[in-house]
Design a protein around this nucleic acid. Structure first.
Lengths: 351, 351
DNA sequence: CTGTTAGCGCCTTCAC
DNA sequence: GTGAAGGCGCTAACAG
């Protein structure tokens, strides 16, 4: 029999006994340092073979205890339901693996209690670093990590407790606003009718996007109306309602609509689906974040993408030679990505 | 200072020293068994308080080593890019947490090498159970787990190496085919023009869906044409191409289209977006899996949902009192879910 | 070149 | 009620 049929995992002791060598030799062979200790290649091979035959597999708990290195890299995020977070998770996993770390990502549903308990759990597991994305307030989590001596990095949300990697929402907002204004002008529409809908007043990303929206307007000498920005919240229902209100008042949609999130965008789609189908033809729409299907909806839509690849790379750079005092804020450009890039990754057999 | 400023984590020794008690006492207090050992409540409180003040946090590596229980629950899946896998991950995390386990889910990009190495890594971390979803062939992974004495469950893919929890693709396919046939009849269309597009011949899910498609046709006494099922693959590009071929030949779209995955559906959308907008009006479309935006595309679409909640629950049930000999296949019904259910979970602050 | 040994931090049994 | 001691599996000195 190739592997022990009992449930118990085999240990280096088993391998040592089976090969008639000592645990130290086995240990060295198994983690590749045997060349440095001039162990006979023959011995090494014998051990390697036995290990395989026994189905041996290092116990990272024991190794971690000994070395105080767990081999775990942690990331917390709210959920996987949109492309941004799903992309963050994916990229994080890839990069962690390529560094020999085992990625462990957990969703918190934006529940602050869960956020804290998840962080504590990850710290208990002795993750070697923690990336924190999309929490309400990262500072307490950063503090927990700091107390444990674990580097933490905030993703896409600035914090006072650790360095942050941020999307350049302001420049992105300015760029997409520019595009929408151009489109409006090309249609002979009125660019100061453009409305920024969704988001939460006082929240970082919304603030930056509003600033970018203003930047673009100012640069054109436009003066958006008083209610050009409506922080009605990020969720779909709120956005649908806000838009319904405007529609009821003006008996038409705004000529231009910049939605502050893919969920707000969803609310807009849901509302406009209740209208006669040609109502939308006279509106140009933009959105922060994207979805592969959104591009095929029956109206003019422009979408912006955050560069998750870059965000994660920068975050890893920050963790190497981590400086606990460092409160750097790294800005990552945002732009119009090729829409199918990600979808094309879908391989055969992908149902 | 409330917490040690040094990077080193405090241990039960630190807590013991600080409170003038012994490590055993601290240990008992900290894991709640102190009542059974008749330790004074006052002592317990003092210890608890010190522990908090020191920022103490159990070292799961050490505890796990001692108890051979890691507190980790593992899950492997291909990616988070569709609602099915994202939902599986989410639900798994919730349920694992509610059982006091730390969820650790990793994406493999459907790369068999990654699948193996990820499984080995998780086994090294001594996960207490492993759910395996969306791999090509689960059996070798099940074998690795079995050798390590770790229960493994296959999700949505049957395997010979462990029990499986499966969506009832056949009944689902039959149900959605029925709906499409009804819609075709209502429009005065010809129901045997219905086409099942996408998927891989010989693959389990595709096979079941084909069977369900046939079931529905048979029940109506219909005889679909020879090319009514086209296993052109799961990815978007392939589906787009296949559909383009049919369109070129017949100079119109089939009257009914049942897409074998959300990615194949995406391919269809991508192709039809290149056609005059009214071409689609005469086609009814169905899809396995769903996306919140797909429902708003400008044609008649019916979507099916897999019950991830149920799949994960059944999987957890199987792991409790795990029987290594058990090769059960649990069938979970598939149906037309309320489309916005999941989207409505989106909370405020969700950009 | 290879074996012996001392912990890493925690939990549990067994004395006291 | 509490302290002392052994050991989970592994690694890094240090002896041979």
């Amino acid at each position: 029999m190739a592997s022990k049929s009992t449930g118990r995992k085999s240990t280096i002791y088993d391998v040592a006994k089976a090969t008639g060598s000592s645990t130290a030799t086995v240990s060295m062979v198994l983690n590749g340092t045997w060349a440095r200790y001039r162990i006979k290649e023959e011995t090494a091979n014998r051990i390697l073979e036995q290990a395989r035959a026994l189905g041996y597999n290092v116990n990272m708990k024991a190794r971690g205890l000994r070395l105080s290195r767990s081999g775990l890299a942690g990331m917390v995020l709210p959920h996987y339901r949109n492309r941004f977070f799903a992309g963050l998770a994916q990229t994080f996993e890839d990069q962690a693996r390529s560094r020999g770390l085992c990625p462990i990502v957990v969703g918190t549903q934006r529940d602050p209690d869960v956020e804290v308990s998840v962080t504590e759990t990850l710290l208990s597991q002795r993750v070697e670093l923690l990336f924190i994305a999309g929490v309400r307030n990262p500072t307490p989590l950063n503090a927990l990590c700091a107390a444990a001596g674990v580097p933490s990095i905030n993703l896409d949300l600035p914090g006072d407790g650790a360095p942050s990697v941020l999307s350049d929402h302001r420049a992105g907002a300015r760029a997409i606003t520019d595009v929408l204004i151009d489109k409006l002008l090309a249609r002979g529409g009125s660019p100061d009718e453009l409305v920024l809908l969704g988001g939460v007043a006082g929240e970082y990303a919304t603030g930056m996007r509003m600033a970018g929206f203003r930047d673009a307007s100012d640069a054109r000498g436009l003066t958006p109306s008083a209610d050009a920005m409506d922080c009605c919240g990020y969720n779909a229902a709120a956005a649908a309602e806000a838009l319904a209100g405007r529609y009821a008042k003006a008996s038409r949609l705004p000529a231009g609509l910049l939605m502050n999130s893919i969920t707000a965008f969803e609310g807009m789609v849901r509302f406009t689906a209740t209208l006669p189908s040609d109502v939308l033809k006279s509106t140009v729409v933009g959105c922060f974040d994207w979805d592969p299907f959104a591009a095929y909806l029956p109206f003019d839509v422009t979408m912006l993408r955050q560069d998750v690849q870059r965000i994660i790379s920068e975050a890893f750079v920050l963790t190497e030679n981590y400086d606990p005092q460092n409160r750097a804020r790294v800005l990552v450009p945002t732009g119009f990505g090729k829409m199918f890039e990600e979808a094309e990754q879908t391989k055969e057999f992908d149902r």
